[in-house]
């Protein structure tokens, strides 16, 4: 994919090379969407609704074990959607989390849709905040909003959207409620019509903040275009081998490549 530099507001940002390595074939597709979320949030139902596939979805944590892929067309663009394993977090050493984490970081999907359970927002925000540390192109899908209503839980979608700095859509995927709006938000973020300004962790514990900042600064110096230096710094402090390898091989530097397009200073070059 070779987007012309002057027309970059709406060109895709995904990392072709890495996606290929991750096993995603992008020929015939314009954008790649990653679907992340806690187990049992109706993520697979959202996936099925978007793609028209029928994957069984139960009231159970942990149904999707293998990664599912599908596609859909919206406003003349072809979207490939990758259903990541449902995880509570992206910080652990389990295979599921590694798959999800590496896909978002190295694949640089054009949009990451995070599905959360409207009745359990606080717990789900843990994952949301982690994803927002990695990518700034995300849409929050507050699913099971019908269940929340039934339990008299009112989710203030606008406040949530303002606080998180990304589009937030309330859906009830089982009733197909809100799916059109979700598609619209996905398209807007993918094409660059909507620029996210994602929330980043405000108060990292004083005990670790200094360490994170020090590494972050060194990373910024070496990889000035990296969109998520703080995340990389935090992963280094956790001893994440895939990050260490990516730094050694210079692969981390590649992550700026397509991203660069959006930075005004590179256009000046």
């Amino acid at each position: 994919m070779n987007p012309s530099p002057e027309n970059c507001a709406n060109c895709p940002v995904h990392n072709m090379g890495n996606l290929k390595k991750l096993g995603v074939d992008m020929s015939d597709y314009d954008y790649v969407i990653a679907l992340a979320g806690n187990p049992n949030t109706g993520k697979s139902t959202v996936f099925n609704n978007l793609t028209g596939l029928r994957q069984h979805t139960g009231n159970w944590p942990g149904k999707t074990v293998t990664r599912a892929e599908g596609g859909f067309i919206y406003s003349d663009k072809k979207f490939k959607i990758v259903d990541l394993p449902g995880t509570y977090s992206l910080l652990s050493t389990s295979t599921d989390e590694e798959v999800a984490r590496d896909f978002i970081l190295f694949g640089q999907p054009d949009v990451t849709v995070i599905v959360v359970d409207a009745t359990r927002i606080e717990r789900n925000l843990n994952l949301v905040l982690q994803v927002l540390e990695i990518t700034d192109r995300a849409v929050l899908c507050v699913n099971l909003i019908d269940e929340a209503r039934r339990h008299n839980i009112i989710v203030d979608i606008r406040t949530l959207g303002k606080d998180l700095g990304i589009p937030v859509v309330a859906t009830a995927a089982r009733q197909r409620e809100g799916m059109d709006e979700l598609l619209k938000s996905i398209e807007e973020v993918a094409s660059g019509k909507y620029t996210c300004n994602p929330y980043r962790l405000s108060k990292v514990n004083p005990g670790i903040r200094k360490a994170v900042e020090r590494i972050q600064n060194e990373i910024k110096e070496q990889f000035p275009d990296l969109p998520n230096p703080r995340w990389v710094a935090m992963r280094l402090l956790e001893g994440d081998q895939s990050i260490i390898d990516a730094i050694k091989s210079g692969e981390l530097g590649d992550l700026k490549a397509e991203k660069q397009i959006h930075q005004p200073e590179t256009i000046q070059n």
Binding site: N126, I154, D156, V204
Partner: peptide, 25 residues
């Protein structure tokens, strides 16, 4: 303790955001 401190930070932010956005009728 790095992992712990980080999780603690994330959850304290999560609690603040959820507090503002979620009301139980």
């Amino acid at each position: 303790n790095f992992h712990e401190s980080l999780m603690e930070s994330i959850y304290s932010d999560a609690a603040r955001i959820a507090d503002r956005a979620v009301k139980v009728d």
